[in-house]
Design a protein around this nucleic acid. Structure first.
Lengths: 224, 224
DNA sequence: TAGATTGTTAATCGATTAACAATC
DNA sequence: TAGATTGTTAATCGATTAACAATC
């Protein structure tokens, strides 16, 4: 173990396991085997065990995993065991959906401040918060100390916002704008692109109707 | 080539290339080499060429790729060359963000109908549309013929909605609800989970502050 | 104890990247 | 023609899965 970097797919699955475990907990289940986790998550039992092995030993041979115990362990791994403040930039439709998202609370993720550059919006209420001037982000985060930020602004403003977030001390950015952000190496970015998701589905869904009866487009020099 | 299944990462990158190409087109650039695409996308030039090779030959050795030509080819591959209708289920915050999303139009993705089960909402306007009764989804899609659907309802209702979408003829589902959907094998699902994204960033961002000075949690039997 | 299930190693699988002959 | 860049093959890399000794 010692010096292995944890694969990103492992981290992504950890969040899935957590959801399965929380559901099981809700249902009053005390113990789960890796096999049972596979049934509920669709993720291979060996994969599940391997994923956990990056962080330690959490199960009992012959018995399985304590649901409650493992929930706590995964929450600790993902730093969801303490309140995690988040800066949201962009008080538009997506921003509104995020501050109104009920599931964050259960995971101790809290949008601690909302920023915009539109002076018509600044000062207005937004969910439980008041929209702040983006110019004050550094100053405000000196108090909050958030390490996570969300970019929910139009593409043309996204890079500038990313720079401001980094300056304010953020090291993890969730980016909803369709742009590739340039950030320093210590900053992590994850992109959410509705367009990309739908584009992939568009290919797959139509592919399906065609029943893969041949080539997807054939291309050839004619195309260029 | 002939019988290779296209890897999903390839499809995801295709959408990224398309964005880079559209930006280049906007900027009046006529031709791009794979090396230049790497500069703009961060994706390895060989990867780019390999990805395209699943679909045909689109470049000229010694020259590169026609921006306009390749845009058309990728749009055709992803079925974004003709208007693609989409059914949206759930007229809440996320639904509102989606119908108001300005970038769909540019990709010929069109939310063609919105559904909800809340009789207070049914009949009300929602963007350019009117909220329809979810009970009528099959009937309404008989006219629209959409193959793509979006689930933007609470987790407890998501599976039921998925069943209805499938029944209505949808073969690609974008799921915003934090649940694992069970669908027939011919139906493709992609999940968007804000929680998952933030959980991964939460780990990475804090990991970063700790500078990976040791083990992530050590675990051990004590934990279970 | 016998049965079950873990954590981990080794084998498999698939995706990424480097290298290069073909070609504009 | 010489220089540049493609499409593709082969090498590398990393992630997934099967198998099994250790152990509750």
């Amino acid at each position: 173990m010692t010096e292995t970097r944890v694969p990103i797919p492992t981290l992504e699955r950890l969040a899935i396991y957590l959801r399965v475990l929380l559901d099981a907990h809700e249902a009053g289940i005390q113990t789960l085997s890796s096999q049972e986790v596979e049934q509920h998550s669709g993720i291979n039992a060996a994969q599940f065990r391997k994923d956990l092995s990056y962080f330690g030993e959490f199960g009992k041979p012959g018995v399985g995993y304590s649901v409650e115990g493992l929930i706590q362990c995964i929450e600790r791994i993902l730093r969801l065991d303490a309140e995690q403040p988040i800066l949201l930039v962009g008080a538009g439709n997506i921003g509104a959906a995020l501050v109104g998202y009920p599931n964050f609370q259960a995971h101790r993720l809290r949008i601690a401040a909302v920023f915009d550059n539109n002076f018509v919006k600044i000062g207005r209420p937004f969910g439980d918060l008041v929209i702040e001037d983006i110019a004050r982000i550094r100053e405000i985060n000196a108090t909050i100390g958030a390490r996570l930020g969300i970019i929910a602004v139009p593409a043309h403003a996204a890079q500038e916002v990313a720079d401001l977030l980094v300056e304010a001390g953020v090291t993890g950015i969730l980016n909803f704008a369709p742009t590739i952000l340039r950030v320093p190496p210590h900053v992590h970015v994850r992109n959410v692109s509705f367009l990309q998701e739908l584009a992939v589905l568009s290919y797959q869904a139509v592919e399906e109707s065609l029943c893969m009866n041949g080539q997807a487009s054939r291309g050839g020099k004619d195309a260029v």
